[in-house]
């Protein structure tokens, strides 16, 4: 390993304390905000604050800001693959009833599986 790779960047103690304080303040804010009803933004605000906190931890406590940028790239690519997974899955789970209107209806209402009065719970993977 070359010297340049291994140059230790010493972060002043003050920075650690400031980041720690910021994390505590943000926790207080999270709790405080939970008492205010923001409607659809409840989740957005909570996750926004949590993301910001995680970012602080990663950048300062885990040294990502000062380390070789390769580590940053590895870290971000992990997030990217997670994003790909969630977004492409949501194209399925959020859009199950799209395009064809017939989807939500039985193709043959007289079929055996619709004979019981209860709605099909599909516990056996459609193998009834």
């Amino acid at each position: 390993m070359s010297k340049k790779d291994h140059q230790e960047h010493v972060i002043p103690l003050m920075v650690y304390l400031a980041v720690g304080a910021a994390l505590l303040v943000l926790t207080v804010i999270t709790v405080a905000v939970s008492y205010v009803n923001l409607g659809p933004f409840n989740l957005v605000v909570a996750i926004g604050i949590a993301t910001f906190k995680a970012m602080l931890v990663a950048l300062f406590f885990m040294h990502l800001l000062y380390d070789n940028k390769l580590f940053m790239a590895v870290f971000l690519s992990g997030l990217m693959f997670l994003g790909v997974f969630i977004i492409l899955t949501m194209f399925d789970t959020m859009k199950r009833d799209m395009i064809y209107d017939e989807v939500a209806k039985p193709i043959n209402p007289k079929a055996v599986i619709y004979q019981e009065s209860a709605p099909p719970t599909d516990q056996t993977g459609g193998q009834q």
Binding site: F81, V84, L88, F91, D92, T93, M94, K95, R96, D97, M98, I99, Y100, V103, G126
Partner: peptide, 18 residues
């Protein structure tokens, strides 16, 4: 290879869009 997994689920009840 990370973007194509849904081709195993064309008839598993996955949405048509997916």
């Amino acid at each position: 290879s990370f973007l194509v997994w849904g081709h195993h689920m064309f008839v598993s009840g996955q949405s048509e869009l997916a």
